[in-house]
Simulated scan of single mutants.
Amino acid sequence: MSVTLKDFYADWCGPCKTQDPILEELEEDWPDVDFEKVNVDEEQDVANEYQVRSLPTLVVENDDGVVERFVGVTQRDDLEDALQTAEA
């Protein structure tokens, strides 16, 4: 089962900068998860496809589709729970 965490962000987004260190830690601890950063200013079509309306938005996906989505700064525990669910 492949798992992806998509981080929808923008350079001007303050809360996105708060989210970054949490995601960087997760990326070190979850080597099997594919972490993708999606700049909504540059990739509006992808943001629209995922119906991103506010930032940051984090989407956890596996082979079956979207497992969980978070809007706003999300704590590590919540993200780890979603990753565990996605890998199951």
Rank of each mutant, 00 (worst) to 15 (best):
D34T: 12
D34F: 03
F35C: 09
F35K: 07
E36L: 12
K37D: 01
K37G: 11
K37F: 12
K37S: 11
V38D: 01
N39G: 04
N39T: 12
N39D: 15
V40Q: 10
V40G: 07
D41W: 06
E42Y: 05
E43Q: 10
Q44R: 10
D45K: 10
V46A: 03
A47V: 05
A47P: 02
N48M: 09
E49T: 14
Y50K: 04
Y50R: 08
Y50C: 09
Q51F: 09
V52E: 13
V52M: 03
V52P: 12
V52T: 11
V52R: 07
R53T: 08
R53K: 10
R53N: 05
S54P: 01
S54I: 01
L55Q: 07
P56W: 04
P56C: 07
P56S: 07
P56Q: 03
T57K: 04
T57L: 01
L58C: 02
L58N: 08
V59S: 00
V59T: 06
V59W: 02
V59F: 00
V60N: 11
V60T: 11
E61W: 09
N62G: 12
N62A: 07
D64S: 15
G65K: 04
G65P: 08
V67K: 06
V67E: 13
R69G: 00
F70G: 08
F70V: 09
V71W: 03
V71I: 15
V71Y: 05
V71L: 03
G72S: 02
G72C: 13
G72H: 10
V73Q: 09
Q75N: 09
Q75V: 08
R76G: 03
D78L: 13
D78E: 15
D78R: 12
L79Q: 05
L79C: 14
L79A: 04
E80M: 07
E80Q: 14
